[in-house]
Amino acid sequence: MSRAERISDNLNRALHQVMEDDPSVHVLGEDIVDPYGGAFKITKGLSTRYGSRVRSTPLSEGGIVGVGAGLALAGDKAIVEIMFGDFAGLAFDQLLNFASKSTMMYGRRVEIPLVVRCPTGGGRGYGPTHSQSLQKHFIGIPGLSVFEMSPFHDARELLPHLLSLGEPCLLFEDKVLYTRRTYRGGEVDDLFVFDLVGPPPYTARVRLDDGSPPDCTLIAPGGVAHRALSAMRALLLEDEITCQLLVPARLYPFDPGPLLPLLGGTRHVCVAEESTAGGTWGGEVAHHLHRHLWDSLPRPVSVVCSAPDVVPTALHLERDVLVQDTAIRQAVLEALA
């Protein structure tokens, strides 16, 4: 197999492809035009090829999400990059009170094909206002769908899917993924394989090659996938506990349906996420699973989050705060003890 592409390249190619395939797609964001090509270079080459359909904007997060919503309302499709997902706070009103509501509040369905991309998460020493995982703040808003990029999903399928929904979507992209490579062809490493289950945009299922039913199920969004994989490896090799890992691309609304058949016989389900605890996506997933599997789950679903804290700048302090593979492993060991 040829060397897999970097996730940043995968996202970049996906953007090129949607702009090529659909002339109604416009891309907006701070510093996104060439030669700079965006703070994380995800938009590189777009302005050179697609000219005025790609705009570097003023520092106006609320404004540019509103402009994107306007383009989308009037018949175009818009993709807006928020340089650091933390600044989506400045666009919250446009998403909450305009874009998501407008699909429903005029007594008929109004299409707003708008995708807001949010580079997200810590692990890079950028400090408290540039490292947060804000997914949870966008969970539970009717008319607003929340997705997360993962190493198992192909942005070339994911992005057109989001644009086809006709409603505002947030796409979280963990910044630590940018330099990592995609998994393709069902192979993860020497121990694990994966497949994609359910309807698009799919949930990735990672498991042992031998097809035996796992003791435990981990559920994590794309940004935490590598830490979950590392926990799975340690649990297998050091604790003799087998796990499967489920990585859904769609976080909200969360449909547990396609996952339920995969959870029969599992002794524990653990959801891991990087946000701070309290009103989280993981809590939402746990709630769904408790409702559907109340009679068969041997114990409550556990949710592993980062510490209730700001994300410090110094790397060693940041590590203490952010959810790590060791915390996931520990949660599983405690549940199965």
Binding site: G127, P312, T313, A314, L317
Partner: peptide, 8 residues
């Protein structure tokens, strides 16, 4: 305390 870093 190393929490804020360069810009906080």
């Amino acid at each position: 305390g190393g929490v804020g870093g360069s810009q906080h």
